[in-house]
């Protein structure tokens, strides 16, 4: 209405409002600049306290050693730079390397078995041939809600001769099976891990299968593609990201293995205190009270997990291009 008024006019109320708005905008800009940090602050403070600081402290203490002065340490302690001595000590008796090798063997077998199993289950559940898919999905997913410790308690009772009906069942069939023997216990642990996580991984894959647009299937069917062919040429390539994600999480999970091995120790004497890398670090810290070497072991575990998942991610993303 008054927008055509020439500039020569003395300042009006409208002008004053405009100046005010500009000022307000400057104030808002400042707010906009501060806002992300304000929003990030609680997370960042906690992240620094529970991730960054402990990692830095662990790296720090992995390079130092504590010496007690006096016969009983009564003259206090002295912390000195130790170079890589904690790392060489961590590897010295060969148990850490052995446990890492054991986890490598475990991962090479268990991770592919589980990923194949959960992929097949997801494809079957999403196929036209499955009855009651909702029920089966819920049943398969249910063990994920059972904590690893409780899953291990459950399965350990099924492994122990005398208590387990499974051992008796195999016995009647003429098969002597020792779930807790030196050669088998690693695979008994693998079974617990597979039981717990297959359904969870399956859910991630099912979710991705559901996001495939329906017309792709329709087009394939018009071309006369069989269910098998659709699975191989359409579904598998399209669920690749989900497969990569579940594999990376499984690799990290394998290196973290602890509760299953620690709990089965009381039934299986072949599980040593250094059976898994994490168990080794735990033993070093709380049985030997050698926090510096334990810190070195933690750093090694974290580094390996980081490098492995990073390498896997790079390899898979390169092949994609």
């Amino acid at each position: 209405m008054t927008s055509s008024v020439p500039r020569a006019e003395p300042p009006t109320v409208a002008d004053a409002i405009e100046v005010g708005a500009a000022k307000a905008k400057r104030g808002a800009n400042k707010q906009v600049r501060r806002a992300p940090w304000l929003l990030l602050a609680p997370f960042m403070v906690l992240f620094l306290l529970t991730f960054v600081l402990p990692i830095l402290a662990a790296i720090g203490s992995s390079f130092t050693k504590v010496t007690r002065k006096g016969v009983f340490g009564e003259l206090g302690v002295e912390t000195t730079f130790a170079g890589f001595s904690n790392y060489t000590q961590a590897f010295a008796d060969g148990t850490l390397a052995k446990s890492l090798g054991r986890m490598l063997l475990f991962g090479v077998v268990q991770v592919p078995v589980m990923i194949v199993l959960c992929t097949v289950l997801a494809l079957m559940l999403e196929s036209a041939s499955a009855r009651w898919p909702g029920f089966f999905r819920a049943v398969y997913f249910m063990p994920y809600g059972v904590p690893g410790v409780i899953a291990t308690i459950l399965w350990s009772f099924l492994y122990v001769p005398g208590l387990s009906p499974l051992v008796g069942l195999f016995d009647k069939l003429g098969v002597q099976i020792d779930f807790l023997g030196e050669g088998t216990v690693l695979w008994s642990i693998a079974n617990i891990v597979t039981w717990t996580y297959t359904g969870y991984n399956m859910m991630i894959i099912v979710a991705q299968l559901k996001s495939i647009p329906g017309d792709i299937y329709e087009a394939a069917r018009v071309d006369g593609a069989s269910t098998w062919r659709i699975a191989r040429t359409i579904q598998l390539p399209l669920i690749r990201p989900a497969l990569v994600l579940t594999t990376v999480f499984s690799i990290i999970g394998t290196l973290q293995l602890f509760a299953e091995a620690q709990l089965l120790q009381s039934f299986a004497p072949s599980i040593t205190n250094t059976y898994t890398p994490n168990l080794a670090a735990y033993t070093t810290a709380f049985a030997y009270n050698d926090y510096n070497v334990a810190a070195a072991q933690s750093v090694i575990i974290a580094l390996i997990a980081f490098v492995l998942s990073f390498v896997f991610l790079t390899l898979t993303s390169r092949r994609q291009r």
Binding site: L40, F43, M44, F47, L49, T50, F51, V52, L53, P54, I55, A57, A58, S61, V248, I252, L255, Q256, F258, N278, A281, Y282, A285, Y291, A294, A295, S298, V299, I301, A302, A305, F306, S309, F310
Partner: peptide
């Protein structure tokens, strides 16, 4: 930088942090 640092945190095993966290 912030996002990258947090993302790296996803790949660090929780149990490897628990021990140093206990000391802290």
């Amino acid at each position: 930088f912030v996002f990258g640092t947090i993302l790296a945190g996803v790949l660090v095993p929780g149990t490897a942090i628990a021990l140093p966290l206990f000391l802290l």
